[in-house]
C-alpha cells in the first residue's frame, strides 16, 4: 500500500478551480516531485495535504488512514512534516529553539508539569535536545546553533526549516520549493541533503520544485500539473519529454 494516496482532490477559490481532480500516490521511500508552471496549484496541493485548506472534493489517505477531514494540528503527529515556499520560521528565536519547536509532536509533559519543571520535564528536554543535535549534525548546522533566525542568510534558513521538519521525526516530508532562491552551489548541497534524507534516514519525500536539474537528480517519479489538472506522470525524463508538459510550459510563458 502507498504511504500517501491522493484521490481526485479538488479545491476552488471563488470559482477558480485551483486544484481539479488530482490523484497520485507516493510509495514509501521514494522522492516524488510535483512540477508545473506558476499558478498550477502545486503549493495548494501541499496546503490541502497539511489541511490548511479545506478541499471541496476528493480524499487524502496517509498510511491507509483517511486524513481529509482532520484538523491541521493533527497532521504532524501522524508523521507528516513540511516546509514552506516563503520560509515560515520563528524569526525571533534561535536555530536551536526552532528545532526544539519541531519536537512539539513528541511532547510528553503537561503545561502544569512544565510550570513546576519536574524532573521528568528535564529528562524529556534532554531527550529532545539529543534528537535535535542529531539533526544539527546531519544537516551541518552546528555553527548556527545559537544564532537568531532573523540574522541568518536565506540559504541557511532554508536548511533550518528542513531541519525543523526533521526534528519531529517524520515519515513523510513535504518540501515546498526547497531550492527557490538558492545559489547554484546551495542547490547542489540541497540535492545531497535530499538524497541523504532518502537513503540514510529512509524518509519519503514529496516535493514541489521548479529547478529541473534538482528535480531530475533526486526524483524517483515526477508528476506534472497545469491549471490544477494532472498532465503526466513518470520519471523525470519521461515527463520532460511529454508534449503536453512542454506545451503547458510554453503556453504559460507566452501569456506571462
Amino acid at each position: 500500500m502507498s504511504l500517501l494516496q491522493v484521490e481526485n482532490l479538488s479545491i476552488a477559490f471563488g470559482g477558480v478551480k485551483a486544484v481539479d481532480g488530482v490523484s497520485f500516490s507516493v510509495e514509501a521511500g521514494e522522492v516524488f516531485t510535483i512540477v508545473g508552471p506558476n499558478g498550477a496549484g502545486k503549493s495548494t496541493i501541499f496546503n490541502l495535504i497539511s489541511r490548511l485548506y479545506e478541499p471541496s472534493g476528493g480524499r487524502i489517505l496517509f498510511d491507509g488512514q483517511d486524513i481529509t477531514r482532520l484538523p491541521a494540528h493533527k497532521i504532524a503527529p501522524l508523521g507528516i512534516a513540511r516546509t514552506f515556499q516563503n520560509i515560515e520560521l520563528f524569526d525571533h528565536s534561535t536555530v536551536l529553539q526552532n528545532l526544539l519547536m519541531g519536537r512539539h509532536v513528541r511532547r510528553k509533559t503537561l503545561w502544569i508539569e512544565d510550570m513546576l519543571f519536574l524532573p521528568r520535564v528535564r529528562r524529556a528536554e534532554r531527550e529532545h535536545r539529543r534528537h535535535v543535535e542529531e539533526v544539527i549534525d546531519f544537516l551541518d548546522l552546528a555553527a548556527y546553533r545559537d544564532k537568531l533566525i532573523a540574522g541568518l542568510p536565506y540559504g541557511v534558513r532554508k536548511v533550518v526549516e528542513i531541519a525543523r521538519a526533521l526534528s519531529s521525526g517524520p515519515r513523510l516530508v513535504l518540501l515546498d520549493e526547497p531550492a527557490s532562491g538558492l545559489s547554484v552551489e546551495e542547490t547542489k548541497d540541497m540535492a545531497w541533503w535530499i538524497e541523504d534524507m532518502q537513503k540514510d534516514l529512509g524518509l519519503t519525500i514529496l516535493m514541489v520544485e521548479h529547478d529541473m536539474s534538482l528535480v531530475s537528480r533526486v526524483s524517483d517519479r515526477v508528476l506534472a500539473v497545469a491549471e490544477g489538472k494532472p498532465l503526466a506522470l513518470g520519471t523525470s525524463a519521461e515527463v520532460q519529454a511529454d508534449p503536453r508538459v512542454i506545451e503547458a510550459y510554453l503556453g504559460a510563458e507566452e501569456t506571462a
Binding site: 497539511s50 497532521i75 515560515e88 520563528f90 512539539h104 525543523r164
Partner: peptide, 30 residues
C-alpha cells in the same frame, strides 16, 4: 514558574503561535 514555562515545550508553543501560526499548526501545535 513563568521562567520554567518558557524553557519547556509549553513556552515554545506560545512563541510558535506568536511568530507564525501557520507553521505552529503544521508542527502539530493546537
Amino acid at each position: 514558574m513563568y521562567a520554567n514555562l518558557l524553557r519547556s515545550p509549553s513556552g515554545r508553543a506560545f512563541l510558535a503561535v506568536r511568530d507564525s501560526e501557520v507553521s505552529a499548526r503544521a508542527l502539530g501545535v493546537n
